[in-house]
Design a protein around this nucleic acid. Structure first.
Lengths: 261, 261
DNA sequence: AACAAAACATGGAATTTTCAATATTTTTGG
DNA sequence: CCAAAAATATTGAAAATTCCATGTTTTGTT
């Protein structure tokens, strides 16, 4: 547990109650005190404020705990019971499926803050279908599922709103599926970079937080394909990169590749 | 409109109100009178009975129209506004995505009755992401989305239940995605036939309602792959088929191929 | 700073998969 | 019932993609 944590009162009990440690995973133990927590929680309030009352919000807040996750840490784990839903305050996460047979990973979709995560997992009767893993340092509120469930049952308006948000992320997975199913390598990789620019980094120049391997797992091809394609694109003046810094210099060309492949 | 249609009163107006004709698609115009409609609708009631009251059910029933769709007909169309949700009383449907660029179709998942369809589409803000098409003759209730929406907002319990059902179908699409992304041809085709036996035909011997082309669109490979693989499997004693009649004679072998293939 | 591990990069061989050409069988519509 | 269309089937060539071997660079840790 970090020594810099400031607790105005003991919320470690709350923490240990709401948070189930994940196997073989080291968890970032930092969390803020209630005051800070409340401030940070305003993002969730903002998303939800149209639909839930102050009373309802306070109930959720009581069932929530604020956590920081470092790059690579698992937030919600595939195969576990969906005991929590997560509100992503800041950072970027991947929806990762790990094949039980081989070691292969598939990234279903990427999501950047602010978003409510785990809704899709939550509504299954079964255990989590995929993991949610930080690809950048993240600030997260883990909310006890049962508390949210009670709210949803009482507040249909909010239920519909939450489903819409959860559906958005499903939709993105499906869109990626369609890209993978119909297009070949180069068009798929183009789709990934268009997606990164439009939905993750909100611009054409960014510091890439994904490794080539992760991009391969997202575009469903080999690492070599990613590396070769990026090199080719750099020669063709479509992208320019050095290390992790990357700029898409001709996004229209990328859109063309996405279509014609 | 079929001459054998018996209408105890004029519901064709209701029909035309609820039903938006689909472009380039001939629609089955048969529908039953209100009495029959009520009887058949009990399936929907049964699915929903734990969550909605008789009053609420009657409201939904008033906003519903019973239709028969013939094999190949489109029930909900990709790109259209999600004006309706469908209760599949009997039959089998495919979730079909048609690529705007080329003519390629992708079958995201298959679903057999009884199920509530279009929930996923419903929760999007956007238009339908995919079409729902009959692969066998279907009996369907089309329910006005706005009526259901009102119910969901008032009845959070039912909203949660409906979303769970919609999530199930999403989950199946995702599982297919994972199969396509990670496995190669033969293992994917094995997955498709295991799915058909377990979730669609509820047995290892069935009359295949999909063409080889549709199976290819489901397993995301070429028609030739399906034909060759089936021939090979028949020689190896894994399946036996003649025309549309097919029997999986060694499903364990199929499961092995799914894993190792 | 040194070292180990991971990530990045490149090229060719091997494999998988699609495409193209063609023939047979089954289904559909008049 | 017949003709046309669609579906099924088979084959080899072409294309796409992964795998493998190898080397360089970057990152993280002690």
């Amino acid at each position: 547990m970090s020594s810099e944590t400031k607790c105005s009162r003991d919320i470690s009990l709350l923490y240990s109650f709401f948070f189930v440690p994940l196997q073989n995973e080291t968890i970032s133990m930092n969390f803020l005190d209630n005051k800070d927590s409340k401030d940070n929680f305003s993002g969730f309030r903002k998303i939800s404020t149209l639909f839930i009352s102050d009373d309802e919000f306070r109930k959720i807040e009581k069932a929530a705990v604020f956590l920081r996750f470092k790059k690579g840490e698992t937030i919600l784990k595939q195969g576990h019971a969906p005991t929590h839903i997560a509100y992503l305050q800041s950072g970027i996460v991947k929806f990762n499926f790990q094949s039980p047979e081989n070691e292969k990973n598939t990234i279903l979709t990427l999501v950047s803050a602010p978003k409510i995560l785990g809704g899709a997992n939550l509504f299954y009767k079964d255990n989590n279908l995929f993991s949610i893993v930080a690809v950048e340092d993240c600030e997260i509120f883990l909310i006890e599922a049962s508390a949210l469930y009670e709210l949803l049952k009482e507040n249909g308006n909010y239920a519909v709103a939450l489903f819409q948000m959860a559906s958005e992320m499903f939709k993105k997975s499906i869109l990626n599926f369609i890209s993978v199913a119909n297009k070949q390598k180069e068009a798929r990789i183009a789709d990934v970079f268009i997606y990164l620019a439009e939905e993750i980094y909100f611009g054409t120049a960014f510091k890439l937080s994904l490794t080539r391997k992760e991009i391969a797992e997202f575009a469903c091809c080999s690492v070599e394909n990613i590396i070769m394609t990026l090199s080719k694109w750099q020669q063709e003046g479509i992208v320019s990169f050095s290390g992790k810094n990357l700029e898409i210099t001709n996004i229209e060309k990328l859109r063309y590749i996405s279509k014609v492949g």
